[in-house]
Design a protein around this nucleic acid. Structure first.
Lengths: 244, 244
DNA sequence: CATTCAAATATTTTCGAAAATGTCTGTATA
DNA sequence: TATACAGACATTTTCGAAAATATTTGAATG
């Protein structure tokens, strides 16, 4: 735990606002609203509006936005304020390739160094994920926010035993970016749900069996498939915007 | 220009403080002071001291520190404030490997896509670097801060034509981290100066000749050599600290 | 009608005080 | 002597007002 980014537990207590850690909380909520296109790409983020929406002071907000800027979710032009970072097909391709490269390296390292606790955690986290993925379509939609969280935790658990902190950190950055693109496939993946369920199980099994080559390959296919789906939705939307 | 990090021009006007952009300025100065071990690794960074040192408000400072946290120069524990990030031999190895991997990819892409302006910029920036590297030892020491800047600009110029923004961004993060470790070799590299001079020239020539394989190899050797030097200094210091 | 300039408006950026939180010191108690 | 607790102190964290900056509006000029 390097203390820099831990969005996990903060994300859960959405409604009630405790007196502590307002800054961390608003950063998580803001990122979540950007990922879910609550704020459209390239939209200006004005302090006046945001202070009302999240009920925090200007300074706190500024710090959160500043953080999100270095994570790549918003851009910051010198004296002009903050904007939501744009999305593009080119960026999706690049992020996908980088993430896959990191994930492949990381899972191999994790398999090399992982102990029994690492294995146990994978099984536990996968179980939590499967509880949602086993649901019928309607239930999966209702608990989509939870799914996002558990899906992240599952992939994280696979590579958790990788000793390279920076590799994990960069991997995590790219995973967060991919979330933005994954979101567009939220409503469209009809039969894909069951397929993902199977893929996750196979990934877990290959990892626990310490088969690095297979695990890496399964993960790569899994990620590429998701990105391809997103691309199919993103490309028409882009050319449409260019035409209109 | 993605508007997130531009430490170049701000670094130059060190003495005079304009009324604008105090935040960006203090972030650059703070990073510089961490890189140069003005603040030792693991040292606590108290607001009271820093506000006096840099003559800025608490909020501004907080934003700068927060930013440096996501760059990996400082760590931030929940309610306990900021500390300078630790350094270690393991981290140096990892950062070096990651940077080399990025730089190799990036220079190949740049060679594929670079135009005449890209070439011209490389020549110009290399010339600026060579003006310092051609100096006798004493002169190089005096202008060390400038050398750091020009050295960064030179390496940046080689990969500037790479179309992958995220690759450049991650490359840049790792380069900044390496600066911290490069600093320890500042005073110790007696005959290494002339050697670096030659290496930089060869790297430029290979790149302009569009020889991706050679350029990548030269860069890798160059970086590894520097990291090895740093490691030789770092390892004794570490075991010494463990003993004392 | 197009352009330029200046006032008015909107927005960002900075700052230090106040609230919240964590840390330390000394005392009482077992 | 060791432990628990309360109070005092130190530090971080949050907030909104004030200063600085950018943007728009509108009138005057060519």
């Amino acid at each position: 735990m390097d203390g820099v980014s831990k969005s996990g537990d903060a994300a859960r207590r959405t409604a009630q606002k405790t007196h502590a850690a307002a800054g961390r909380d608003v950063q998580t909520r803001l990122r979540s609203d950007i990922v879910s296109s609550e704020f459209a790409p390239e939209a200006r983020l004005k302090f006046a509006e945001l202070t009302r929406r999240y009920d925090v002071g200007i300074g706190t907000l500024r710090e959160a936005l500043s953080q999100l800027a270095s994570e790549g979710f918003v851009t910051l032009e010198a004296g002009k304020g903050f904007k939501v970072a744009p999305v593009s097909a080119e960026e999706l391709v690049e992020i996908t390739d980088l993430f896959i490269s990191f994930e492949r390296q990381a899972v191999r390292e994790a398999i090399k160094h992982g102990d029994e606790d690492w294995e146990a955690n994978i099984v536990a986290v996968h179980h939590r994920l499967s509880l949602i993925e086993g649901l019928p379509w309607e239930g999966r939609m209702q608990r989509h926010a939870e799914w996002v969280q558990r899906h992240r935790e599952f992939h994280e658990s696979l590579v958790a035993a990788c000793p390279g902190h920076w590799l994990l950190r960069l991997r995590s950055m790219m995973f967060d970016q991919l979330d933005r693109y994954r979101f567009v496939t939220k409503n469209s993946s009809g039969t894909a749900g069951r397929q993902k369920f199977e893929e996750h199980r196979k990934m877990m099994e290959a990892t626990l069996a310490r088969d690095g080559d297979l695990a890496a390959q399964l993960i790569e296919d899994h990620i590429r498939d998701t990105s391809d789906r997103a691309m199919k939705i993103l490309l028409p939307a882009e050319s449409e915007r260019a035409a209109g």
